[in-house]
Design a protein around this nucleic acid. Structure first.
Lengths: 189, 189
DNA sequence: GCCTGCATGTAACGTGTTACATGATTTA
DNA sequence: TAAATCATGTAACACGTTACATGCAGGC
């Protein structure tokens, strides 16, 4: 039995919260972890099968009328595996941000458009923060740690919005405080 | 000539800053855009060929002694393409954060370890911020917009460190301020 | 003469998204 | 009865990383 991918662990963890079908897992991901951990049907269904084959979860047929339906429950082995994972060091966060990329390259493309790019990115962040607040208001994962993550997500996107607004203002004024000697040196680390 | 991938645009943009070899592009990415846009040789070299075939960049052989070396320069068509891209709406930022995932699932795995997870994640963020400060101190991309992005990256990781430290403190005290009625309602959006 | 850095490339692999196919149940 | 939602699944494709192969140049 090979290493599990991080996505496999995410699915395993969600099943650990309470038994669910593949469809329910997708719905749960879409309105909770989506912003830091997404998953598609193309991953979920094959992964559920693999986890079941490895004895980490167990599927029970629970049809609703004539509609087939398999509910997965975590096993003792699955719980053990999750606790092990919890103790291992985590991978660095990875993110790709096309807005940042555009802003970074603005000088080589059209310097004058830099403030606009920054403003647009700020707007995007505000939108995301608003959607997270929406989720928070009828929050499902109500235990302390998942609530902490939700709150952090909101704070994070609020922060990004402020950051890009500030960058836009600086760029508009042409006051980007470039590293011209003293100023930049005194605060390294 | 099909759509360019976002990575293709990143490479095109870097060539637009000044002519470079594939090797130099990789080095540049590794110590500037890496934290919001990474790229590997496996992408860079094939992509440079494709961009050249499409007439967006042009490769010139400039060997150093007997060592073959191709320097790529942006063409007029390439510049045009970049300006078009600059005007299109950007994709949402996407990020995956294994530390956040662990924290989110902590309640279903081992609630008592949640503060530790949060502290570790904070430590990681401090490390990343420190590496960015290092880059900032001998910054290559010195134009206002790329400098703004670098500064933002530092502020971002500092913020993440504070965020997770704060979450850790709250979780230690068991004071996670859960959405118990009024408090949570009054500030939704 | 050896190691590090410059330089180019590819094959294999793993991961993830999109689009499609199928069909039952519930609600308007 | 039509549309939305519950439910499962896969095939094709796109994207990215890792590991390897190759070879020259410069400094110790």
């Amino acid at each position: 039995m090979k290493e599990l991918s991080a996505t496999a662990k995410a699915i395993l963890g969600i099943v650990a919260m309470r038994p669910r079908t593949g469809y329910e897992i997708k719905a749960f991901v879409d309105n909770s972890t989506r912003f830091f951990w997404a998953a598609s049907y193309g991953q979920i269904y094959p992964e559920l099968k693999r986890l079941a084959e490895n004895g980490l979860i167990e599927g029970t047929d629970e049809p609703t009328g004539g509609r087939r339906r398999t509910v997965y429950t975590i096993t003792a082995a699955g719980k053990k595996r999750l606790r092990e994972w919890h103790r291992e060091p985590s991978a660095d966060l990875e993110f790709r941000d096309e807005g940042m990329l555009k802003l970074f390259l603005a000088g080589a493309i059209e310097p004058a458009s830099a403030p606009r790019i920054a403003r647009e990115r700020a707007e995007q962040a505000r939108g995301t923060a608003a959607r997270l607040r929406e989720i928070e208001s009828h929050a499902e994962g109500k235990d302390p740690s998942s609530y902490a993550v939700l709150t952090s997500g909101i704070a994070f996107h609020d922060f990004m919005a402020d950051l890009f607004d500030k960058a836009a203002r600086d760029l508009e004024r042409g006051q980007t405080k470039r590293p011209t000697g003293a100023g930049a040196q005194e605060r390294r680390n």
